[in-house]
Design a binder for these strands. Sequence first.
DNA 1: CATTTTAGTATCGACTCGATACGTTTAATC
DNA 2: GATTAAACGTATCGAGTCGATACTAAAATG
Lengths: 191, 191
Amino acid sequence: MSISQVHTALERLSNLLRVEARMQGSVEGLLPVQLEVLHYLYQCNRYSDTVQGVSEYLGQTKGTVSQTLKVLDSRGLLRKQPDTKDRRLVHLRITAKGEKLLVNVVPARFLVEALDSKPARETERLAEDLKDLLRAAQAARRMKTFGACKTCRFNESSQSGFRCGLTGESLTIPDIERICREHQYPLASEG
Amino acid sequence: MSISQVHTALERLSNLLRVEARMQGSVEGLLPVQLEVLHYLYQCNRYSDTVQGVSEYLGQTKGTVSQTLKVLDSRGLLRKQPDTKDRRLVHLRITAKGEKLLVNVVPARFLVEALDSKPARETERLAEDLKDLLRAAQAARRMKTFGACKTCRFNESSQSGFRCGLTGESLTIPDIERICREHQYPLASEG
DNA sequence: CATTTTAGTATCGACTCGATACGTTTAATC
DNA sequence: GATTAAACGTATCGAGTCGATACTAAAATG
């Protein structure tokens, strides 16, 4: 059964990612989870860069995430920025220091070593296949999809740029490249 | 850069595996790591079913692994069996109870839901691609490969069956389907 | 305006995990 | 063959993860 083989391979790759992250992180005194949070925030726009967003993405409780963030904040790798309109919200912005650190961690060295020598087309296909798998998995479980606005059914393009049909807010070019918490793929019927 | 996309997708899938394992495991009071150990042992032959083997596979220290194993042992999910020749070694054998438990966990439900509706050929291709990736990654980092004897360069077939060219021991059919710690893929020159 | 929901924090306890130290058995070296 | 080194496994400790629970504050709902 090849589904089991996919599971086994993913489990093993997951271990390698973790081992690699542990190694890379230990240089800076950071743990795998903390690196993952930074990587997530690096890809976020203002809809997803919150404690709740991180919590849903990682599948951890808000309490746990809150603790992780406290560490990252104290090391100057991210900045907490209260929302001006909704004062319950805190936006988590990765700092320049944080981004600099990430460059050494993503993509993991073993992936570069494994894929660099292959034709670019094969790597692209693998990336597409994995994204497909993710999409299918998240759809099946009705999970949040954590996609970028540009692939979202709520994203509308106007003559002045882009706009989120859900919140009504206008979106910048960088915005639509980033992860949104409310992201939903187009309905099947919308082709 | 599609390597980064591969990294991101793998990281996310890794999270899903973990979340799923946490859910499934909580029913039995088991943690993700403990399930992984069981899954590993399920695939092992006598060269790899040791504390050291688990330790290398998971990238954790022997001390950590030893503790995890103590829990699994006390719950009757595995059996410790001292080696008859080398009295330093302890073989870890998964019990029937352990195997029964695994069936509900592997493959993860979200993978089945995502892949079951697709053509079998596509899933097979994905499995092959992932195994390729794994193989390339492990080769590049000179890591242990944790492959089955049947794909190992030391495996020799004789008229009476199979034999490991490294240890000289003869191997049974079930043996060569399982993971070996000393596994090495054939040299490129041996094509 | 009362109630409910949502965002985030704080605290506690069970558990992970690496580091270290240790005992035992086997292999290596002289 | 005696000494030394290496390998396998265990035990203990402390820092840190992580879920559960309880809490405050702000916004949404009615």
